[in-house]
Amino acid sequence: MTRIGLPRLLLAPAFLGFAVIVLPVAGLLGRVDWAGLPALVTSGSALSALGLSLRTAAFSTLLCLLLGGPLALVLARADFRGLRLLRALVLLPLVLPPVVGGLALLYLLGRNGFAGQWLDIAFGVRLPYTTAAVVLAQTFVAMPFLVVSLEGALRTAGQRYEAVAATLGAGRWTVLRRVTIPLLLPGIGSGVVLSFARALGEFGATIAFAGSLEGTTRTLPLEIYLQRESDVDAAVALSLLLVVIAVVVIAVARPRAVEGLR
């Protein structure tokens, strides 16, 4: 198959775009205290924050999949008035500053929020400033990434295979389980990777809704922010650790998702 070349004029802006992304990371590498790096990233507070970040990001990604998957199916396959408004509301966390999302969660589920008051009175549950609050904050900001990936995959796949299966007598659940979900696997992989990476780096919504309690709500981004004020070398080392984890997650999982699209 003949490859179609790109206009040479695109190379310069493409290089500049690459530089905008890569050079700040290069600047970070230049500031790292390499001699003290092992001690900085294995301190008690660093390991506690890292473990909490990985656990909460995993739980929030699972929530994104369980809730965002059906939501993406509705957005891609349903047809009713108000669908465009629903899609706009679902994508709202993509454009909102995360701290606004955290405040919204706080005023909904906090002690003075109408849902928070009900949870407190009926079940004695107080979500703000708990590990569960971290998971909810991460889910709020990460779910749109999974929804966008799955909805795009559904629209690209179309409905012809599902229509054939229905014509052959397959029920709705059978079509979903045997046709739709297998077609969605590449999109699911891509969405899960993006959601996990976004949840892992979440800061604004977490600090507004969950606070910064060591061992309970202080994730790695919050630990970096706090260390920046008192120990710049530790903040830089933890920032590098977060960059490495994100790169590994994307490098390992993303190619498998892309390969499924071929």
Rank of each mutant, 00 (worst) to 15 (best):
A205L: 03
A142G: 01
G113R: 07
V164P: 05
G215Q: 05
R177K: 14
G171E: 07
I188E: 04
A197Q: 04
V147C: 06
L146K: 06
Y107V: 15
G201A: 03
L127N: 08
R111L: 08
A165N: 09
A165V: 05
A104I: 10
A237S: 13
A197S: 13
Q117W: 15
L183F: 07
G101I: 07
V134H: 05
G152V: 02
S239W: 02
F123L: 15
V244R: 04
A163I: 09
G169V: 02
T167R: 12
T139K: 00
G191Q: 05
L150W: 05
A137G: 13
S212H: 01
L240I: 04
G102R: 05
V148E: 14
L226V: 04
G101A: 02
E214W: 00
L220N: 01
R126V: 14
R155I: 11
D231Q: 15
G116L: 12
L103T: 11
D231T: 09
A163L: 14
L238G: 04
E229P: 00
P221K: 09
P128Q: 08
G171M: 11
G102T: 11
G211K: 03
L103A: 13
V232F: 14
A153E: 09
T180L: 11
V236L: 14
A104P: 08
F114M: 12
L150E: 02
L168D: 01
S230M: 01
P182M: 05
E162H: 06
V179E: 07
R218S: 09
E162K: 09
G191H: 05
Q138S: 06
S239P: 05
A170D: 08
V134F: 04
E229H: 01
A122M: 11
S195D: 01
V232G: 05
L220F: 06
Y161W: 12
I207R: 04
A133S: 10
V232C: 00
L184T: 09
A210R: 02
R111C: 01
Q159Y: 02
W173F: 12
R178V: 10
A163Y: 03
G211T: 10
T139N: 00
Y129C: 02
T217R: 10
E229C: 00
G116V: 14
Q227P: 00
E214Q: 13
V134G: 07
L222T: 07
G110V: 12
R111Q: 14
A104R: 06
L109S: 02
Q227S: 15
V243K: 05
A163P: 09
A142R: 10
S190E: 02
F209C: 10
W173R: 12
G204H: 08
A166S: 14
P128S: 11
